[in-house]
Structure formats: C-alpha cells, structure tokens
Write a protein that binds this DNA or RNA. Structure first.
Length: 483
RNA sequence: GGCGCUAUCGUCUAAGGGUUAGGACAGGGCCCUCUCAAGGCUCAAAUCCGGGUUCGAAUCCCGGUAGCGCUACCA
C-alpha cells in the first residue's frame, strides 16, 4: 500500500513550495491507489502558532485535494520519547551534557569543521553509569544519535528524483534526538512517525536531501525499513534565493492566490509545471491528466524560479500562473465555474437573490460572455461590475468615447428606438445601431464605442451588441439616456 | 570552510550521441474586428566556461565557475 505524507510545520503560512510538495505527493498517491496523510510537524512548540495552523489548513482545503488521515506530532510525544529511550538503552544514542552556550559558541561562529561530536568526544564515550548518574541528578542533556564510527563505510540510497546518493558516514554528525527540555527533534519525531504511520514514500523538498542519511540511520536503529525517498527541487524567488515570505512578500503564501481570485485548479496546474512537465507540449492539464501523468522520475533536479514583480499590479504573480488561470477560467465547464463566481458577488455587494432562481440562467450566460477576457475571479466584480450592479465608474478612456461630437445625442436617439423595439435581440439591436449610424452618416464604431462606454463605463469589453442584451432592455435604455 | 545537488531563450520547460535546439509565458509585428480580450500567423530570444571521448556532444567524462541546499537543542 502506497502511503505518502505531507508534514508541514506550523511556524509560518502555507508556502507555495509546500503546496507544490503536497500536490506532488497527492498526484503520486492518487495515481497509484495510495493514501495521503497530513501530519502537522509541530515539535517546535515555541515557534508553532495556531494562526499558522489555520493558514496551512485553509490553504490545503482550498486546493481541493483532500487527504485521508490527519495527525499532529505534538500529540505523539510519548511515542517519541519511548523510541528515544529505546535507542539510549540499545546504545544507539547517548546523552550529551555539554551546556548549551558552549555548543552555540564553538559551533556557530565561522564554523571550523568541528561539530559537537568532535568537540565533545567525552560525551559520546561516557560510561553509561556516569551518564545515568548525572541524568538522575537532574543535569540537563541533549540525547544524540550515536552514528557508527567503527568502520568507515559509506551510506547510500536511491532517490526517486536525484538517483543514487551516497555519503561517507564520517560526514554525518551525531545529530540531536531529544532537546534538553525532553522534547523530540524533527529528525526523531519524523522518523518514528514515518515508521508508525507506515509511510511508503517520502516526497519532500530537496533541502532534506542530505538529512536523509540521518533518517536512514534512524530507521535502521528503530528497526524499520526506510521508505522510498523522492526529493523535489526548490522554488526560488526572482532574485534566485529560496522563496521566503520575509523576502518576497505575499506571493509566497497560498492564501494570497485564493484571496486574489485564482481558481484552485489553475493554481495547482501552475505549480505542477514547476520542476515537472508531461514531456509533451501540454500546459493546461486537468486534474486527471496530472494524476495520470505524474511520476517522480520525471521531476527535474533543478530549482525553479517563481517569476513575479511585486511592484507591478499586473504581474503580482508569475505571469504564467495568471495565464494558466485564465485558460482554466475560459475552458472549464461553465457549471463548475458558477459556484466560484457566485461566491464572489456577495462579497462585492453585487448579489441578487434572484440569481438562485429566476436569473440563474442570466447569471450563467453573462459569466460565459465575460470569462473569455478575464484572468481571475476578481475580474467579475471589478471589470464586470457594471453587469451585476448599477453603480460603476466611467473610465477616462470611456469618457473620451462619450465626448466625441454628437455621440450623446445619438445614444439618446438610439434609446428611443430601442425602447420600442419588438424583440430585444443582439441582431435587432445591431440593426438599429447600424441603421441610425447610416442615417446620420457617422461611422458605426462611433456609436458602438460610445454605447459600450455608456453601458459599462469601459472602453473595452465584449461585443457591444452582446452587452445590450446582457444588460436587458430596461437597464440599457436607462443608461443610454443618462449620459 | 566541509559535504552534497544543479546548470538549455528573461521565465517555465522539450530534446537523454546525429533536430534549422521544439513548445509555452512575457515582449515586438500582422490578420480578424465596434473596443479589449480570445483565436490564427509571425519576429526576436538559449545549450555557463574550458578540456577530453567520439566520424559526430546540449546530451557521456574531467576541471573551472556560478547558484542552491545541508553542516542547529529549526523543520
């Protein structure tokens, strides 16, 4: 049974890099009848916050890729401690009584090659009896893994993405298992839980590639077979540094995409193409195609840059992400799009209860008319405001179209004629507009553009005749008369 | 510093010994047209550098350089 896990630590918002890791885990498991486990790695109690947890859960839910099980590491600390004790008894771990400050000082500054395991060989070699005695006296200690030093063999594993990885065991330090307050570190908790939760494949960021040797050592000491590993290349900012909220702002947070009108699947599609591709020229892929096509050995080994311009209103996100979203917006089944549009309207004060019954069809027609030229869901309530409500601003460029000589009178005249039109259809409206233009010897474009301006306050938009019909005779005539 | 990973247009990527190095986004132009989109066509744009191996290298090997990661009682 394939079982994967996504293990975020709630010390920040859900990062798009984390989201991509989750997405790849999900595709991998779903494509093979496996299960997805969400595990909150909150072993760092001091830095973990409720707010972060909320953000992570909200972000993941929005992606609409449901998980099968959920666990929280802090609720399993007993298990972790038992495992640590077992390792200590077996001699696979030892207590390090070195005072914290001493370690901080020796290791930190312009680090020589020395690590704690070299700095304090006395701790590693301390007789168990002395170790037990000092612990019993309450002297604080860190529990460290005793990396085998006797033979200088090398460690190796086959990463599904990075292929065979090997390392001299001498290059692996005696890493911490338990902190001096008794709490488990990430390495211990993660490995113990991976064993207990029967994780078959660990798919995570490349920043853990070298940590994997420690984990394999731990899996073996714990008596479990190591899972398969697949490390993913990292996501970098436009400056080439690892994406971070601090440095790169709100674009690294998943909820930003939600709040700015991305379709969940448009976002998923975009992320899936960072470090992976279907190897053909497809770019817009359905969830099903993604699940069927994804494979770890198709994942690139190079970091990808998330390109965006924080200063630009247009390119606040990667232009390609925006484009992919716009493609989904116009290609997805209209019925699937409607709930998203419907939830945008009330927020903007543009909701009409009749959208649920009498005007349901109208809403859907209008959405269909508009979506081909929109990028995000927010466009429906900003650019599309005049369609759903009666208060809207007139843009400068639209005003110019209205200010053209004779434009207003023509529109007033047109309003009269439309008011008495038999059937208010696109065809008939067009006939009236062109007819009037011919009578007055003006270019139809003059009237058409002025009409669009009067009707929507904008100089751009769908075919003006379609706009007339979308608004309906009553509203259209009223707006023509008002200018 | 040590250890490791990586290197194709500005960006995301395809091509894993033989291609005019392909596609997409973004940019330029044209068509369409009532505007803006969409759509169609089109232009510009890349194999980090240096050595090998080979008839032939983006592709394999070595070196350099650069970027990134790890080197925590963070994950």
């Amino acid at each position: 049974m394939i079982r994967v896990r996504f293990a975020p630590s709630p010390t920040g918002f859900l990062h798009i890099g984390g989201a991509r890791t989750y997405i790849f885990n999900w595709f991998f498991a779903r494509g093979r009848g496996g299960q997805v486990i969400l595990r909150i790695d909150d072993t760092d109690r001091e830095r973990s916050t409720q707010e972060s947890l909320r953000s992570i859960l909200d972000g993941l839910k929005w992606l609409d890729l449901p998980w099968d099980e959920q666990h929280r590491q802090s609720e399993r600390s007993g298990t972790h401690r038992d495992a640590a004790e077992g390792l200590l008894r077996k001699g696979a771990a030892y207590r390090d009584f070195t005072p914290r400050q001493a370690v901080d000082q020796s290791g930190r500054e312009e680090g020589e090659s020395s690590g704690p395991w070299l700095a304090n060989p006395g701790m590693r070699e301390m007789p168990p009896r002395e170790s037990d005695r000092r612990a019993a006296q309450g002297e604080p200690f860190v529990l460290r893994f005793r990396v085998p030093r006797e033979s200088s063999h090398s460690l190796a594993f086959d990463d599904l993405v990075y292929r065979r990885q090997s390392r001299e065991i001498g290059d692996v330090e005696d890493f911490a298992l338990l902190r001096s307050d008794g709490s488990p570190t990430y390495h211990l908790a993660s490995t113990v839980d991976d064993v207990e939760l029967k994780i078959s494949h660990v798919i995570r960021g490349q920043d853990h590639l070298t940590n994997t040797f420690k984990h394999i050592l731990l899996f073996e000491a714990l008596g479990g077979a190591p899972p398969q590993f697949a490390h993913l290349p990292l996501l970098l900012g436009p400056d080439g540094s690892k994406l971070s909220k601090r440095k790169h702002g709100p674009v690294v947070s998943v909820t930003t995409y939600r709040d700015r009108g991305f379709l969940p699947h448009g976002f998923v599609n975009y992320l899936s193409l960072l470090g992976w591709s279907p190897k053909d020229d497809r770019e817009i892929l359905t969830r099903r195609e993604l699940v069927e096509g994804f494979s770890p050995d198709g994942v690139l080994r190079t970091n990808a840059i998330v390109s965006f311009d924080e200063a630009s209103e247009q390119d606040w996100a990667d232009p390609k992400a925006l484009w992919i979203n716009s493609q989904h917006l116009r290609q997805m089944p209209l019925a699937e799009l409607m709930p998203y549009v419907e939830s945008e309207l009330p927020e903007a004060g543009l909701w009409d209860p009749a959208y649920e019954n009498a005007r349901k069809q109208w809403l859907s027609n209008t959405t269909d008319l508009l979506r081909a030229r929109y990028t995000t869901l927010k466009d429906f309530t900003s650019k599309g405001r005049a369609y759903f409500g009666d208060t809207f601003d007139i843009e400068p460029r639209a005003r110019k179209n209205l200010d053209k000589a004779g434009a207003r009178e023509l529109l007033h005249e047109l309003a009269e004629r439309l008011a008495s039109l038999d059937e208010f259809s696109e065809e008939n409206v067009e006939k009236q507009v062109r007819g009037l233009a011919a009578e007055r010897s003006v270019k139809p474009g003059l009237m058409i553009n002025a009409a669009r301006a009067a009707l929507t306050g904008q100089s751009v938009g769908p075919s003006a005749f379609a706009v007339f019909v979308a608004l309906g005779r009553e509203r259209a005539v009223k707006r023509l008369k008002q200018v």
